[in-house]
Simulated assay, not measured.
Amino acid sequence: MEGILPLWKPKGYTSHDCVMKCRRYFKTKKVGHTGTLDPEVEGVLPICIGQATKIVPFLTNTKKTYIAEVKLGSSTDTEDAHGSMVEEKEVLEFPSETVIDKTLNDFLGDIIQIPPMYSAVKVNGKKLYEYARANEAVERPKREVTIYELEKLSINPKAHTVRFKVVCSKGTYIRTLCVDIGAKLGYPAHMSALVRTETGTFSEKNAVSFAMIEEAVEQNEQQSLLHPIMDGITHLDRLYVNEDTKRKILNGQKLAEPKNIELKDPFAVLHHNELLAIYQHHPDKAEQIKPVRVFSERS
């Protein structure tokens, strides 16, 4: 079995929990997820099965869409509603919709984030949350992320909350975005709710629940829930090759740089509609391209 399972991760499960369950459902150890979702967050978590695990880093590197809620007036050590209070400030005058819209607009494009202490970002080989739990201070690395869309959906002045939709790049911390939006509005803040509605081409519309998977398992129809591997890399450029070149690719050979075609790294290599490999330009030899991932030939 191979393909991509667009799982709707429920609250209360870690991404690793989901991988372990899918290993049992699909009877294989070759299972990987494509971008961690916190246990208390629900949403789209594409799971790669079989040879699809080879595209995990490329599918992880796609745009994500979230529906989030920021609550003004208090901040926490985890930057979400599950942490301990760090700072509090009474919201005497909730910002106007005009001010909120302008503030959200300020975050569009490339922005710099400092990841939360309670995150899996590594510093000197150790995850930030490990430093946080040990009460150890450490300098957090700044990182550039991209906010493609940021749209206010609703406000609740009584609850001091703003609900918004965000489309962003890999590595964006929505918790941190909420804190930074709050700071710009003049208040300590935290993320009070979050749902991931899209990852790449996979969305809430085509996601499957554990109940749906269990029903398919009973009918021995798990394969019907899996999407083709190509669905996970639609954002990559494509190079089509002939039968002779296909043999070389399946043997993991480097190839001559294709003429009259511009390809951004990494790119998919296909024979007709069969995905053969992921290639990139050779870092040292400008006249060559080299394989990054090669897929076994299907029977």
Rank of each mutant, 00 (worst) to 15 (best):
I114T: 14
P116D: 08
M117W: 03
M117V: 03
S119K: 10
S119D: 03
A120N: 08
V121T: 14
K122W: 04
K122T: 13
V123M: 03
N124M: 03
N124I: 03
G125V: 09
K126H: 10
K127M: 05
L128Y: 11
L128W: 04
E130C: 10
E130I: 02
R133Q: 12
N135H: 14
E136F: 04
V138A: 05
R140Y: 04
R140A: 03
R143L: 05
V145N: 05
T146S: 10
I147F: 07
E149G: 04
L150R: 07
L150C: 14
L150M: 13
S154K: 09
S154V: 03
N156C: 11
P157Q: 07
A159G: 12
A159F: 12
R163H: 10
F164L: 10
V166P: 15
V167E: 15
S169R: 06
K170S: 13
K170L: 04
Y173H: 08
R175P: 05
L177H: 06
C178I: 07
G182F: 02
K184I: 00
Y187Q: 05
P188R: 01
H190G: 02
H190W: 01
V195I: 14
R196F: 11
E198P: 09
T199I: 05
K205R: 12
K205A: 12
K205L: 11
A207W: 04
A207L: 04
V208L: 01
S209Q: 05
F210G: 00
E215V: 00
E218W: 00
E218F: 01
Q219R: 01
Q219C: 00
E221Q: 01
E221G: 00
Q222G: 00
Q222K: 00
L225N: 00
H227R: 11
P228H: 11
I229K: 06
I229P: 14
M230H: 08
M230A: 06
M230P: 02
D231P: 14
G232E: 05
T234S: 09
H235I: 01
H235Y: 10
L236M: 12
D237W: 02
R238S: 11
Y240A: 07
V241I: 11
E243T: 11
T245V: 15
K246Y: 07
R247T: 15
L250F: 12
N251Y: 14
Q253E: 13
